[in-house]
Computed example of a mutant assay.
Amino acid sequence: MPQKRLPRGRVAQTLLVAVIICIANLRAVRRFRRDSAFVPRKKTAAKGSASAAIAQKPVGATEA
């Protein structure tokens, strides 16, 4: 099995490339949000909305 293991330098290089790609993606997302004035929606459901009614329905309850 030791023949199939990557050398330590290769593992470190792979991790470094993964971190570099992650940082590049975060920068691209920040740039997109800044340039497009993107405002994410809040995840809270408004009272009286259909999604709020579904979220408050007890598990196993059936409609009559």
Results as ranks from 00 to 15, higher is better:
Gly48Val: 01
Ala12Met: 08
Arg8Gly: 04
Ala28Asp: 01
Gly9Ser: 04
Gly9Met: 03
Lys43Phe: 14
Gly9Asp: 05
Leu16Pro: 01
Arg5Gly: 03
Ser36Arg: 06
Leu6Lys: 12
Ala37Tyr: 12
Arg27Trp: 14
Arg27Pro: 06
Ser36His: 11
Lys42Asp: 06
Ile20Ser: 07
Ala61Phe: 15
Val17Cys: 08
Ile21Thr: 08
Ala37Trp: 07
Arg31Phe: 15
Val39Met: 05
Val19Gly: 07
Ala46Ser: 13
Gln13Leu: 10
Arg34Ile: 10
Val29Ile: 13
Leu26His: 10
Arg8Lys: 10
Ile21Arg: 01
Lys47Gln: 15
Leu26Cys: 13
Arg5Ile: 05
Leu26Met: 15
Glu63Ser: 13
Gly60Gln: 04
Ser49Thr: 04
Val29Asp: 04
Gln56Ala: 15
Pro58Ser: 04
Lys42Thr: 03
Phe38Asp: 00
Pro2Gln: 12
Val29Lys: 00
Ile23Ala: 06
Thr44Glu: 09
Thr62Asp: 08
Leu26Arg: 03
Ala28Glu: 00
Leu6Arg: 12
Val17Asp: 09
Pro7Ser: 06
Thr62Lys: 14
Gln3Leu: 13
Lys57Met: 11
Ala12Asn: 11
Pro7Leu: 03
Arg34Tyr: 14
Arg41Met: 13
Gly9Glu: 07
Val39His: 01
Leu26Val: 09
Arg8Tyr: 05
Val19Thr: 09
Pro7Arg: 07
Ile54Gly: 02
Arg27Asn: 12
Val11Ser: 03
Ile20Val: 15
Ser36Asp: 05
Pro58Ile: 04
Lys42Pro: 05
Gly48Leu: 05
Val39Lys: 04
Pro40Lys: 02
Val59Glu: 11
Ile23Trp: 01
Ser51Gln: 10
Val39Ala: 05
Gly9Tyr: 03
Ala24Ile: 03
Gly48Ile: 01
Pro40Gln: 02
Ala46Lys: 15
Arg31Ser: 11
Val17Phe: 12
Leu16Glu: 15
Leu16Tyr: 14
Val11Glu: 09
Ile21Ala: 05
Arg34Trp: 14
Val11Leu: 10
Lys42Tyr: 01
Ala18Tyr: 02
Pro40Ser: 03
Ser51Val: 11
Ala53Asp: 05
Asn25Pro: 00
Val29Leu: 11
Ala12Cys: 09
Arg8Met: 06
Val39Asn: 01
Ala50Ile: 11
Val29Pro: 00
Ala55Trp: 03
Ala53Gln: 07
Ala46Val: 10
Gln56Ser: 15
Ile23Arg: 02
Val11Trp: 09
Ile21Gly: 02
Gly60Ser: 03
Pro40Leu: 04
Asn25Ser: 05
Thr14Arg: 15
Pro58Glu: 04
Ile54Val: 10
Ala18Val: 04
Ser51Tyr: 10
Lys57Arg: 10
Leu16Ala: 14
Arg5Glu: 09
Val39Thr: 03
Ala37Asp: 13
